[in-house]
Design a protein around this nucleic acid. Sequence first.
DNA 1: ATGGGAATTTACGTTGACGTAACTCAGACG
DNA 2: CGTCTGAGTTACGTCAACGTAAATTCCCAT
Lengths: 134, 134
Amino acid sequence: MTDDRIMTIREMCDAYDVTPRTLRFYEAKELLFPIREGQKRLFTKRDRARLKLILRGKRFGFSLEEIRQLLDLYDMGDQQQTQLARTYEIAQQRLSDMEAQRDELNQAIDELKEQMRWGEKMLASMDQSKRAAE
Amino acid sequence: MTDDRIMTIREMCDAYDVTPRTLRFYEAKELLFPIREGQKRLFTKRDRARLKLILRGKRFGFSLEEIRQLLDLYDMGDQQQTQLARTYEIAQQRLSDMEAQRDELNQAIDELKEQMRWGEKMLASMDQSKRAAE
DNA sequence: ATGGGAATTTACGTTGACGTAACTCAGACG
DNA sequence: CGTCTGAGTTACGTCAACGTAAATTCCCAT
């Protein structure tokens, strides 16, 4: 299976369009845990799954720290239920934050659209006078 | 008219809920141009109008640099319609960015909710076994 | 004159997510 | 054996948008 292949740092960089620095940085921040064979890092299927989630999280505007916490939720097996419950709390908190953020964003979008109707009219009228002047 | 009153830095801070540091910072970044009477800054109606736009811009997620450019174009007023059109373009771009961001956010919210249903069941079942064990 | 309370300037600190040297080290190749 | 390539480590640099501290200056009331 090419699925559980092990990848070098370069293969990872090419596959996910990130720099080596970024991968090492993520490792330092305990977001990834590549195998350390001697000096080299070897990235497993698990690292790839985590990296995908990291990148997606970033697109959503999460901080790396928030992402780290969410990642812990993902690969929690049969841990202590207090831990699990705690993580669940965090996720809930994060969810309501996101919903609030979405609502603000929607409001901002509406406001901006409103603003733009202004400029639209302005442009139209200026276009008119420009045509008239020709 | 209290409309074209001149305001001190403190009055501005109170009126717009910003710190003096912020106002000086905006001046340094050439977003505001208060009159310098001796040492003191005096903010005119124009500065207030600009500040309002700055704060609104920030809510829309523009960077200060983007805002500065928009303000400059805005200032050109009805001079060049090309500038106005450019402003409109920028706003449109930002709008679609925001909408894309909102959509991604919504998707992320759904996904996170999905994840959480997982943890919910898990918590419930663990609670069961805990009760049973007592 | 003196103290108090603003406002000012200068300049270093902060946070997050890496970028960018600079230097070392380990294999691979000819 | 020398060199080239790729990977590694260490550590300082960057960018945004201010915060914060220190030292100074100003006007005004007591």
